[in-house]
């Protein structure tokens, strides 16, 4: 060992706590790791690439005629709906992968390093925004290919995309929480799907709400997914920032305010 010499502990500057700056740097490094992992295992991106393509095609051609008379008229309804559903489904992966990661040997090393405890969690959540971006871009592109021409213009479409990504990030805290408290990755997947299915389908994402029985209408009207879908439709189709936009952001903030501390606390207890 020519180069490596061990410093005695006296000469070391030992810090009792990690500073905010270090926490951020550590989190960014962990996010970089997440990106490298995505690049190294591109098969991880199957869901965010295939789902927007297949779902957009299927829903547009299956329901288009029945709901809006023809496919092109249905696109302004279904594209925001599919977008929200796809991106939120993608955020489940955050929880599943977090669980898988935490069971691996490398997590022991992270835990034994003098880094901010929150970094592996924050890094994972941050890196996954890349997945949401891919899913969002693909859904809008599919819509464009099928003939969707949002009236809001490109600027508002990008704005809508950003809104969806921010909300998906907020929602991913819920699944991260399941990821931290569950014992197995498949259980995370299971619980998350049970939560997600009613949330995305009992909403205005795919069909007009007034065709539902009244008790479902009631749920759909308070369902945050409905508000997010409406906000995206208003932005992309009309270029309007409406009340649903505010509802969506407030909803996202509430989710983060509840689940971020819960997740962090559960995560700290387990590590």
């Amino acid at each position: 060992m020519k180069s490596a010499s061990i410093h005695p502990r006296i000469t070391r500057q030992l810090k009792k706590h990690t500073s905010l700056g270090q926490s951020i740097r550590n989190s960014l490094t962990m996010a970089y790791r997440g990106l490298l992992k995505i690049r190294r295992t591109p098969e991880q991106l199957f869901d965010v690439t295939l789902q927007p393509i297949i779902f957009t095609l299927m829903f547009a051609y299956i329901f288009g005629g029945a709901i809006s008379g023809n496919v092109v008229d249905y696109l302004p309804v279904i594209i925001p709906g599919i977008l929200v559903q796809t991106v939120i489904t993608t955020s489940i992966v955050t929880g599943v992968q977090l669980r898988e990661d935490m069971d691996k040997g490398v997590f022991d090393r992270f835990k034994s390093l003098p880094i901010a405890r929150i970094a592996p969690l924050a890094g994972a959540l941050l890196a996954d925004t890349v997945r949401y971006t891919i899913a969002t871009a693909l859904t809008f592109s599919m819509g464009y290919i099928l003939g969707y021409r949002p009236d809001g213009g490109l600027g508002y479409v990008v704005f809508a995309a950003l809104l969806v990504i921010v909300c998906a990030w907020a929602i991913s805290w819920i699944f991260a929480f399941f990821g931290v408290i569950s014992r197995t990755a498949s259980r995370v997947q299971g619980i998350s799907m049970i939560v997600l299915f009613p949330l995305t389908f009992v909403s205005n994402a795919f069909v007009p709400v007034d065709t539902m029985p009244s008790w479902l209408q009631w749920f759909s009207s308070i369902n945050p997914v409905s508000h997010l879908v409406s906000a995206v439709r208003e932005l992309a189709n009309n270029g309007i920032i409406g009340a649903d936009f505010v509802f969506s952001l407030v909803g996202a903030a509430v989710i983060v305010a509840i689940f971020a501390p819960l997740t962090v606390r559960a995560y700290m207890r387990r590590t």
Binding site: R33, L36, K37, R40, T41, K104, G105, V106, F107, D108, R109, S112
Partner: peptide, 11 residues
């Protein structure tokens, strides 16, 4: 660790 504590997916 007993089981390699390195990231399998990375180089």
């Amino acid at each position: 660790g007993q089981y390699a504590s390195v990231d399998e997916a990375l180089s």
